[in-house]
Design a protein around this nucleic acid. Structure first.
Lengths: 138, 138
DNA sequence: ACAAGCACTTGCAAAAGGCAAGAGCTCTAC
DNA sequence: GTAGAGCTCTTGCCTTTTGCAAGTGCTTGT
């Protein structure tokens, strides 16, 4: 998907070439809610990504500096994945997707609770959630 | 992609199942900038979507009521595609994608001009652009 | 009546996705 | 120190989706 030359200069098209597939934004969503995930955390997500696809997407996201790998503090055979600042800044997109979905699809209760916070003050919600995630960048 | 049962109840996942592929958001982008497009307008977009893929995506987007078909006023062999309100409401997502791309990718001059307007007052930009598109819903 | 334009469809090859099994590490228990 | 279990991927094989080229059927302009 992302190898080869880009289709156009359009910002939307270029963005989609990085994370515009069926899975990447779910990986990013997982990282936004959990702050950090191991490989098998991703595999446990309810959508059920296949392991080879996961490995591929993690590779692409890392190459594009959306996420980065770091070693697990207590187990050298585990790998931790975290968002970079570039990845963290995808939060507004994720939020707008949630808001759209809330309006037009049926969504679970816990998502609604989060969105109540968002609607109260979107800017502030994004600011504080971003700050929280950025603390892990150290 | 969208047939079969859904992967999960996650709002992001459900949304991606509708328009989360490499092409759908580009079709929506075209409709946001041009207000209405014919089939060959989409084919002329710089990304070069294949005609069978285009036909398939238009079908899925119409089934999900993101777009709708209407007949061309002056030529019965042409078909016009327009966004529904559900499609118009994807504008905030498109805007956030543009803002992210502006920050992290290199984007063309005309996109930057539009984004200057957005940054001046995002809420008002969305409000007025939405209103403009909604006028065509009649 | 003919050619050109338009919205698709079809057929076929290439690429991507999905599943199951396994490889190569590391840590734990004995 | 060796066996087993857990972890991150990789590999092979098959299915699905995508991409390309050509074609179909309708409409319109000349």
């Amino acid at each position: 998907m992302q190898n080869g030359k880009k289709r156009s200069d359009c910002p939307v098209s270029c963005s989609l070439e990085i994370w515009g597939d069926k899975w990447s934004l779910l990986i990013i969503r997982d990282l936004m809610t959990a702050k950090q995930c191991t490989y098998s955390d991703f595999l446990r997500s309810p959508e059920g990504i296949a392991t080879n696809i996961l490995a591929d997407r993690l590779k692409v996201l890392e190459e594009n500096q959306i996420i980065r790998k770091l070693e697990h503090p207590e187990n050298k055979s585990k790998v931790l994945y975290r968002l970079t600042r570039k990845g963290i800044d995808l939060l507004p997109i994720i939020i707008e997707i949630n808001l759209w979905a809330e309006k037009y699809l049926s969504i679970p209760k816990d998502s609604k609770a989060m969105l109540r916070q968002v609607r109260k003050n979107k800017t502030e919600f994004i600011r504080s959630a971003t700050k929280e995630m950025e603390e892990l960048l150290h």
